[in-house]
């Protein structure tokens, strides 16, 4: 079995299993905890709406809290959007998802992904620099923060090595043309490392963010408090 076959076969299967089962387990650890009834008279009963509004509003900068620097906020937008474009709007990646799930959609032009990649890389480097130099972030940081940074950056860097390679989109009948098999295998393996790490570290915030924001939205809305 070649490295590429390994990466496309058993390692991918294991990575996806760990990703889905691990994430489900992590969410279960939250949801299995009791939720005590709240007997206080609510000021508003639109708690579901409040929860959903909190999910949206916490994505926006908060002008009333002037000390929260816009630099970090804009940077977070830059690399989150950059990564989302790379994963979901780049033709080879849509092809990859289609092979796994049968779902596909229109890709953005490649140059858009290249710009998104630049944003993601610069943003992640800036985020790491801030983490290393800012007293607060340095104190809060642990192995998870730095390892997560590495496993996020690796697929981007290994993917860039493939950009110049010719790409033939995959179809259900025809496997995609492989550029350099070793480079592609390394890229896939780096993605698989990310998938395996996802449930254990802070990457899981991609899912947990909806839970914590929603819950706060519900509780604050009951009180009639601002979100």
């Amino acid at each position: 079995m070649t490295l590429l076959e390994l990466a496309r076969g058993p390692v991918l299967t294991v990575a996806l299993l760990v990703f889905f089962l691990g994430t489900a387990w992590r969410l279960w650890a939250v949801f299995r905890r009791p939720r005590k009834p709240d007997y206080s008279a609510p000021r508003s009963s639109d708690t579901v709406g409040g929860g959903l509004r909190a999910i949206w509003q916490r994505m926006l900068p908060r002008s009333a809290y002037e000390r929260i620097g816009m630099t970090g906020t804009i940077n977070a937008y830059a690399y989150h959007i950059g990564i989302a474009v790379i994963v979901f709007a780049f033709a080879p990646h849509i092809g990859f998802i289609e092979r796994l799930t049968g779902l596909s959609w229109a890709a953005l032009p490649d140059w858009v992904t290249y710009i998104a990649t630049a944003f993601a890389i610069v943003g992640l480097v800036f985020a790491l620099a801030t983490r290393l130099t800012d007293d607060v972030q340095r104190l809060l940081s642990n192995f998870d923060d730095y390892f997560t940074w590495i496993v996020t950056m690796l697929p981007i860097v290994t993917g860039m090595a493939l950009i110049e390679q010719t790409y033939v989109p995959a179809t259900p009948m025809v496997a995609p043309a492989t550029p350099d098999p070793t480079l592609l295998a390394v890229h896939l393996l780096s993605l698989e490392l990310l998938l395996i790490w996802f449930p254990f570290g802070k990457l899981a915030h991609a899912v947990l963010v909806f839970v914590s924001r929603y819950r706060t939205g519900v509780e604050f809305t009951r009180k009639g408090a601002a979100l």
Binding site: R35, H205, E219
Partner: peptide, 14 residues
């Protein structure tokens, strides 16, 4: 409870 568990799981150390 479930909410506090979600909080403790969610911090991204920003």
């Amino acid at each position: 409870n479930s909410t506090t568990a979600a909080y403790l799981e969610s911090c991204v150390h920003c």
